[in-house]
Structures are given as C-alpha cells and as structure tokens.
Design a protein around this nucleic acid. Structure first.
Lengths: 209, 209, 209, 209
DNA sequence: GCCTAACCGAGACGGTACGTCACGTCTTTTA
DNA sequence: TAAAAGACGTGACGTACCGTCTCGGTTAGGC
C-alpha cells in the first residue's frame, strides 16, 4: 500500500492499459540507487530520477504529486522492518527498540536516505504529516505499547507521563543519530540510555517482583 | 562576526570601496521578513531575497557562496541571546536552559526560521558543520558547563556521562520542538523534564544540603 | 528550410512532441516587430525577444545557438523575393537587379533590419559564413548569371572578369546603401550606375553580330 | 586630437591633478593588443580592457562615454597614414589610393580591427557619425580631390558625377575587402579596377592633349 | 612647503542579460 | 488508456558586465 495515486481511477472495471507495477518499483529503486551512490539530495531532480529509472516524467507525476510525496514512499520502502521484541521485560524491549534506532543512525542505506530526505520533507507541512502518519507514528506506537505494558507490570511508576517517558528514551538517541550524525553511536549506547533513564522512572521501592 | 566573506581580501590595507554593512543587514533582515510573512522556504530564491532586500544578486554572492551559507548567518542572527542563568542550583539553571529551548519551539520569529532553515541546511555537510560550529555547539557548551558545575557540587552523580546527560535533558525537548512542531509544549514542560531526568542522575543519598 | 536546429533529432521516426512551427514564426516575427519599432539592436536581448514572442528562452536556444544564428534566419525571412528579370537585354536585367538593391537600402522593413543585424553578424565568422551561404551568395549568383548571358550575347566584352564586373555594378550601390545609409539613393541611380559602368565594358564596336 | 573628453574641465586654468596622457595611451594600446591577440570583439568588455591596461574602469569612463566612443579613437589610432600620391596622373593617383585600400583589407593590424570594430560602431548612429566625420570622410575627400583634378586635366569626362565616380572606384574594392574578407585581393587588383572603370569614364576621343 | 582639487587603482553597488537546468504540463507515437 | 520522448512557458541558477559610487592614496598647480 503506497501513497502513490493521483490517477483517474474513478470507478468501474479499470479501462485502458493498466499501470505497470514494474515501473513503480523501478522509480523507487532508482531513487534509492541514486541516494546510495552519494548523489546529494539537492541534485535529485524529478528529471534525473526519470532518466535513471528509464521512465517518462509524466509517469512519475501520474503516481505522485511531487518530489516530497515520492519521498514519503521512498522513506517507507527504506524503513527497516519493525524489530522483534523479546517480551521478557520492559527494559529488554526498550533496549531492542533503541538498538534498532541506533543502527538506523549508522552509515547505511536507511541512514543515507534518512539524514536528508527526512530534512527535505519538512518543507511541506502536508508531506510532513503524511510521513508522520505513515512512518513515524506507527513506529512510535510500538514504544508506547511497550511502556504501557511496563506500567501495568509495575516496571514503571504509575504517575509517569508515558508520552514524555517515550521522548526521554528516544530523544537522546535521535539527538545523536539525526543532529550529530558524525558522532560515535557506540554499541552499548542503547543499554546505557535505557538504564540511565529508567533509574528515575522506576517505582521507589521493589522494582521487580 | 559573520560567515560572510568570500572576498578577495588577500592582504594589505583594504583596497577598493569597502563593503557596506547596511547591505549585509538589509539582506539578513529581508530573509527574516520573508520567513515571518510565511513564505515557504522552497520559494526563498536568492533572486527573491535580492528583490526584497533591494540588492543585486551579485551582492549576495559576494558575501555568501549560496543559499545554505546565507542561512547559517540568518540562523545566527535569529538566535535569541543566551538566557541569564540564576546560578542558584544546577536544577534551576537547567530549567532556565530548557525553558529557553521550549520558547524557541513556539511559533515565533526564531521558530518560523528554525523549523525549516534548519532542515534546509542539512543538505550540505559543509554547511551543517558551519551551523554546528557557530550556532549549535556554543549553545550546547552552556549546558555542559552547568552540568560540570553540578557534578562538582554533588548535584549529579560523579559517574554520570555528562555528554549523555546533556542529551537526556535536551533530547526530549528538541524531539517535541523540532520533530513534532504542532505538539503542545506546555509551560511546565521544562521543569517536568528536568525533574524526571534528574531523578535518575542524583547521588543516591543526601542530594541537597 | 531554416538554420533552426540544434535538436537531438538523432534518427528514426521523430520521437516525443514535435517542435511547434507556430513558435518558430512567432519568434522571427517578434524580432522583426521589435526592429521595426525602432528598438536599437544593442537592446535586442534574447530575454526581450522571448518576452515579446511569448516564448521561453529555452525554446529559442533549442532552435538557435545564439543571437547571431537567429539573426541569420531573421535576415532570410526579411529578404525580399528575387526580382522578376525582364530578359530583354543584359542592361535591362542589371537595372532591375540594382533597382532591387536600391529599394532595399531605403528605410523599410528589410532596411531597418539589414543596416544593423547585418553588422551584428560580422562578429562571428561562423555566422558571417552562414549568412553568406544562405542569403548573400544565392542573390549574387543571380547577377553572375545575367552577366554570363550578356557575355554570350556579346553585350559584354569576352575578356571581362565577370566577378569583378559584378562588383563594379553592385559595389557602388552597396557603398551608398550600407555604408552611407543617410545618403539619397535617388530613383535613377540604378540606371545611372549601369550605364556608366557598362560604358567601359561593352565591346569596342558592333555590339550584336 | 582625440574624441577623448567628458571631463569636468568646466573653465579656469585647470585645477587639480591633470589627466595622465600615459594612461590614455595604455588604454588604446591595450585594446589594440587584445584585438591583435584575436580576442573576439564581443568579448571586449570595458572591464577586460581596464584589467588589461591596468587601469580603473572609471578612468576609462572619464575619457569616453562608452565602448563605441572609445572604438572611434581606436580606429583612428589604427588608421594607416594617408598614402603619398605621385601626382603624375589621375590614373596613377587612383591606383595608389586603391592599393592602400587593398592593403588595409589584408590580414593585418588595421584589418583585424576594422573588420569588426567597424561593424560594432554601426549600432549607434551617433558613433557611426563620429566615425565618418573623423575617419571615413577625410580619407574620402582625398579621392574626391584626385578626381576633381583629373576632370580639370581632361582625364575624366566633364559630365561625370564625381561622387558616383568615386563610388565606382572604391565600391568594388571595399565590397571585397569588407564583405568578402576571405577573398583573394590579388596584387594587380587596384590597377585592374582603375583601368576597367576608367574605360567608361574617359573622354570619347583624344584623352590627353 | 603646504592646500586642495582632480586624478588614479580597486572594487562594491543595483541592475540586466547571459546560457543552463528543472519545474509541471502538453502533445506526439507506439503499444 | 498507459508509456517514453521531448517540446512548452516559467522562473531560478550563478556569472559577467554595465555604468556609478566610494574608498585610500597620488600628483600637480596656486598660495
């Protein structure tokens, strides 16, 4: 399921030549390839994308309304799958989530894309919203669920603001990954953050049963 | 002290007509005005900036090598002055710092600029660096100094990683201000974050005398 | 048949949207209009031509490589049709040809263009050549043919250098038309020149056998 | 005596630092050098001329009102001296004059300049006039004088229009020199033209008493 | 031996035009 | 009807000159 769609697709049993799905993939893959090849985002024109994918410009505009909309789908395609949660404890789950975040911040496919496409999308509030609805929030909900479970289990104080707590875990990691991309992001960082933050959020006594 | 340069200024006692400082101000003010007027960043062409400031394009290029370099100086000019620290305690200082951060996230002059110019600058690593060196890091050092003082005073555990601690305070606030600009950012947020985070970083016993 | 080209037109059966012929005409007419309106040639920028013709700059550059190339086609379009030769005698034909030349020198559409565009084109040897190949030489060949016929008929001495003879007829007229445009160019000038020059070129006695 | 002059030189006995004559020469020589070096006329900007001559732009504008005015003086400076007339007969004098014209058409200093600067000047009627008044007409008067003398001596029919006769001699030569610069311009051309034209202009019988 | 006005070089200034590139739309042919 | 190709009007890019305007620094008289 993509954002892709601007078509006539009014009703009825689909008249005329159907849209080639292969073309869709060629376009998304083309963008990825360019980004991986180190092409600066500023040089990623629709014209160049079309050339790379061997596709007419109109074919792109038939599917997306502009660069930003296209990028939302690129981001989603580049998004790594949700990490498998062990479920042994809230702490373990949080570490796995933050570890996934840390790995995204390293110099890899997602990172190359994220560090800039992400930025680009902010220019349009409409797109920024679509990106959040389709990519950011689902991922965020995962963390919220973990925290809710932890609160029910007594691993978290009952009076903790879960939204804030979530930001306290992810904030420091994102700060390094996004704003200071050249920073180290060492292997133990996820565990370190979880423990440091958890220290203040645990119930005053008898944390684990 | 600006980034503005690019000049031939090889050496000697300044030959030729000196650059007008008034022009410099007119350009920076022009960009601010456009941003405040709600002009989308994508429509902020050099050509339009020049028109607004009543200035030739070459006059802009004489000072900055491109839009991004110009934006670094715009950001610096828009940056609010460093907040006055009360110095009564680390907690009070941190609250003041975070409160300043919160206020920047609201819909104001700085914010309108920050939310987008900031994004734009990421497209060039060179510029991103200049921005950090000139704007981000000095501000960040302020927080680090507060934490160092707190650690010496015993308000912070001796074994705390100060860099990480700093991220734990600012990360959650920035996460809301930058990535979720439509979020609430309520008045007590700074205090709430400082207390929540501090809870885990304070020495085990007898924090305050 | 125009110079207009520069296109990609590598081979095959014409792919993509074909170039609009109407646009081509609009551009050439636009230049003419501006020149007739008395716009100094120095102010005939491509930008202004495009504005006048209601056309994008790129559309002009797609067809011509620059102002000079465009002007070659303007000159050809402004060129009056070859005059009808009576064929009754070499003298009569020459008078008609020179009369056509004289009329071009007067303040009319062709003239306004010629007096300056002509000059402009000299700046590029490449263009100057194209102009000669496409405009000047065909017209010149007409005169040469008349002289050749006259020589065969005995209206011209057999030992006359025809190239030189041609220059002897057209030279004086052009000298006035091009180099002294404010000169009179009176009505009988063509006949006067032909007779004066012919006086020295006719066979000594018994013109026709 | 130059055109050079736009100065304040309002009245009085010349106050302030007088204009350096060396600078004037440096500028004219600079233009010549550039033209001889094959710099296309279109690339002869005031800026470049100033750079070449090691002179400020204002120093040029203080003397001439623009490129065209400057070029009038360049043309005059490049003009070869009037040829020495033998005075033995009108025919001999004419041959010397036309021979001078022919030599100017060859690839030499004057020619390189003439072929283009000449063209450039046509764009401004004001300059074209100055050029004619200062350069062309004096030279032309020389020929007229020769013809007048010839007519008095009986070497020319009494009813010949001298203006037209002059054009009949110079027209063919200029046509080749200016409009067909790549043409041969062989050594005997001057004599050939004079004799061919003179054939029709001589008195019917008994040319010399 | 100053004073002062005009010169000089350099180069900034507000403009205009250059020739290129990308935008998003349109018009072709071919499938 | 989709698709590739590419022309179209629009407008920004960064550069080069235009002719004017400061700058600091000469360079001559006239006092």
């Amino acid at each position: 399921m993509t954002l892709a769609d601007s078509g006539p697709r009014s009703a009825g049993p689909a008249r005329g030549r159907p849209r080639s799905e292969a073309v869709e993939i060629a376009i998304l893959e083309g963008v990825m390839k360019l980004l991986e090849d180190g092409v600066p985002l500023a040089e990623l024109s629709i014209e160049r994308i079309a050339r790379t994918a061997g596709v007419g410009k109109a074919t792109i505009y038939r599917r997306w309304n502009g660069k930003e909309e296209l990028f939302v789908d690129v981001m989603r395609a580049a998004e790594p799958p949700d990490p498998e949660l062990p479920g042994t404890s809230m702490r373990d789950d949080l570490i796995v989530l933050l570890e996934a975040l840390r790995r995204r911040g390293l110099k890899n496919r997602s990172s190359a894309i994220m560090h800039n496409v992400h930025a680009q999308m902010k220019s349009s509030p409409r797109i920024w919203n679509a990106y959040h609805t389709n990519v950011v929030n689902p991922r965020r909900e995962l963390g919220m669920e973990v925290l809710r479970r932890g609160q029910r289990n007594g691993e978290l104080r009952a009076d903790v603001d879960l939204e804030l707590a979530n930001d306290m875990f992810t904030g420091p990691m994102l700060l390094r990954a996004v704003l200071r991309p050249d920073s180290e992001l060492p292997e133990g960082l996820a565990e370190q953050i979880v423990d440091e933050v958890l220290a203040g959020l645990r119930p005053v006594s008898s944390p684990e049963p």
